[in-house]
Design a protein around this nucleic acid. Structure first.
Length: 390
DNA sequence: ATAGGGTTAG
């Protein structure tokens, strides 16, 4: 960038820092930091300092971000939010909260929103809702970010009553709502039990994106409407939207729920051949589940072997093992049990699996007793539900 | 012209 002899401007530095943050690429980011100091643009340039801080935070180097933050003197809401979000992304809710506590007296709406989002992203649904309610009580401005955090928290809680309240808030407070709000709203309705409301919001949208469709596909599958999920997938492609790896997890999951073996295999093929998406462990797990439940254990096994780079994934072997049990294939089941035991011997679920895996063909019933003893539970299992977790 | 926060699977 300095071939021309013209020294890079602060704008050039900023866009390079943004690229480092997005990748993320900490080594390059640190290089830029050095050159900023060499070229005299630092210190005493708040915007450049904040960009740098955000780069460190997005790369997960919160200590470096914190150092800049502490040395910065006067802060503003952009700095605070970058710190809160940075701590939130690496799961440090406590530190995020301590930054928030330093500024909460200013009633800065973006800090409140960032904190609600941080709670929601880290599974602290209750705290997110409490904070959102406090925002309402104190009449802090509710932005799209704040409401999305609250919707996501409610989704985690599956609280239908709260869902009604929040949906009304969306109508009241977010008139020019963006696609993030729509998507979070649809997801909340679906998980809180109302596929109808999810559908209604979906139909009212004028601009949908990949996430909108992925969310609806999962919603339909969860409510037992696998065929509709497949139509949704088709509609999405007709709209010219490109499915991503999460969309395919949704669609394979829908096929698995509905026992749609042919459609599932076609979708998997479409994903790898047409869209060039390399299968993740989640995709293979769905396929093993789908084929395994249909009794096609050998096909399931072959699929795992075709994706042997994922063969250390416990989820895949767990699904395979469950299928072996469902169809009484003792030999394959033992093999899967050994794999699980090798992968994570400490896992109590795997110890249970291993106990049954040690059994010889004639000893299957004895193994069943051992297993019952260890788990301390009965053997009731519902179709489609792994006996390990059940 | 340069800075921040969010939604999908599991």
């Amino acid at each position: 960038m300095h071939r021309t002899g013209v020294p890079p401007s602060r704008f050039t530095f900023s866009s390079v820092l943004n690229a480092c943050a997005r990748l993320p690429a900490i080594l390059e980011g640190k290089q830029v930091h050095k050159r900023l100091i060499q070229s005299g643009l630092l210190p005493n340039n708040k915007i450049v300092e904040t960009t740098l801080l955000d780069m460190y935070a997005k790369c997960g180097f919160l200590d470096d971000a914190r150092k800049l933050y502490d040395e910065m003197g006067e802060k503003n809401s952009v700095t605070w939010v970058a710190m809160i979000a940075g701590y939130g992304k690496c799961g440090d809710v406590k530190e995020a909260r301590s930054v928030f506590d330093c500024v909460r007296e200013t009633e800065d709406a973006s800090c409140w929103a960032a904190m609600v989002a941080c709670y929601a992203q880290n599974g602290c649904a209750k705290e997110a809702i409490d904070m959102y309610m406090e925002m309402r009580a104190r009449e802090v401005k509710i932005s799209d970010v704040a409401i999305v955090g609250a919707l996501s928290a409610c989704t985690q809680l599956g609280d239908a009553e709260l869902a009604t309240t929040l949906a009304a808030d969306v109508g009241r407070l977010c008139r020019g709502r963006g696609v993030f709000v729509w998507n979070a709203l649809i997801h909340m309705h679906a998980k809180c039990g109302s596929l109808d409301l999810a559908r209604k919001e979906f139909n009212a949208m004028k601009e949908r994106d990949v996430i909108t469709y992925s969310t609806m596909i999962t919603a339909l599958a969860d409510h037992g409407q696998s065929q509709e999920a497949l139509s949704m997938f088709q509609q999405m492609q007709n709209e010219g939207l490109r499915p991503n790896e999460v969309t395919f997890i949704s669609i394979l999951n829908a096929c698995s729920h509905g026992g749609l073996v042919k459609e599932g295999c076609e979708s998997f093929e479409l994903m790898t051949s047409v869209f060039g998406i390399r299968p993740l462990a989640e995709h293979v797990t769905c396929m093993v589940d789908l084929l395994g439940r249909a009794g096609q254990l050998e096909r399931a096994y072959n699929l795992v072997m075709e994706n042997v780079e994922l063969a250390n994934d416990p989820g895949i072997w767990g699904a395979f093992h469950a299928a072996c049990r469902l169809h009484g294939d003792v030999e394959m089941g033992e093999m899967a049990a050994r794999k699980l035991g090798e992968m994570d011997p400490e896992d109590p679920g795997n110890q249970v699996v291993l106990a049954s895996g040690y059994a010889s063909n004639s000893d299957w019933q004895a193994a069943e007793k051992v297993r019952k003893m260890i788990s301390g539970k009965g053997t009731k299992r519902s179709p489609g539900c792994s006996w390990i977790s059940g």
